[in-house]
Amino acid sequence: MNIFRISADLLHLASFFILIFKMKATKSCKGISFKTQLMYTLVFTCRYLDLFHVLGMMITFNFAHITGLTLYNTFMKILFLAASYYIVYLMRTELKSTSDDARDTFVLWHILAPCAVLALIFNAQFTILEILWTFSIYLEAVAVMPQLMLLIETGEADSLSSHYMFAVGGYRALYLVNWVYRYATEPYYSNWIAWIAGFVQTALFGDFFYYYFVKIMSGDAALKLPT
C-alpha cells in the first residue's frame, strides 16, 4: 500500500459520495448517464466475487490468510458495491422522472461484446473468476463512454457532475502512478492487463481533464464543451 494507491481509492470513494450528494441535494440525476452507472454495478459485481471467498474464510474462523490488506479491500469492495447499486436504485426509483434517458443513447452491446471477447482471449488464467475479473477491468476502462456521449450531446455539465467526472477519471490516473511505483519497488509485481486497461481508461478522460482544469482556473462553475 502506497500513498498513490490509498489516494486513488479515497478519490474513487469520494466520486460516489459526490454523485449521491448531488442527486440528493438537487433531487435530480439530469446529466448523469444511467447506462454508465449500470455498467459500474456490473464491473464491481464481476470483479468482487472473491468477497464470497473472504466471507467463507471468516465464517469458518479461518483467519490465517486474512491480512490487514484483505480487511481493507473487503471493506472498500462492500462500500463500492453498495454505493453503485444505491446510485442505480435512486436513478430508477425516486429520481427516474429526472433521468436523461432520451439522450442516453449509447448502445451498451458495443462495449459489452468486445470486452467479453477480449476477456475470453486475453486473461491470466482460464477460470470463471479470472475471466470475470478481466472482463470487469476491460469494461471499467470503457464504461464511461455513455457518460461522455451524454456530455457531448448536452454540451455542458454542472459543477458537481464535473467534480464527479474528475474524481472517477483521477482515481485511475493515480492507479497508473501506483503501478509505476509498485513496479519499481516490488520485484515480482506485474499486471499488464490492468496497466493497459487503466491507461485506456485514463486516456478516455483526457479531454475532460483538460476542460475541467481550464474551467476551474477561470473560476466558472459550469463546464461547457466547445460546440
Binding site: R5, D9, H12, R47, D50, H53, V54, H65, T67, L69, T70, N73, M76, K77, F80, W133, Y175, N178, A194
Partner: peptide, 10 residues
C-alpha cells in the same frame, strides 16, 4: 493454495 489475493487492488 491461496490465490484469492492475487488481485490485491480494487
Amino acid at each position: 493454495d491461496e490465490d484469492f489475493d492475487d488481485h490485491d487492488e480494487l
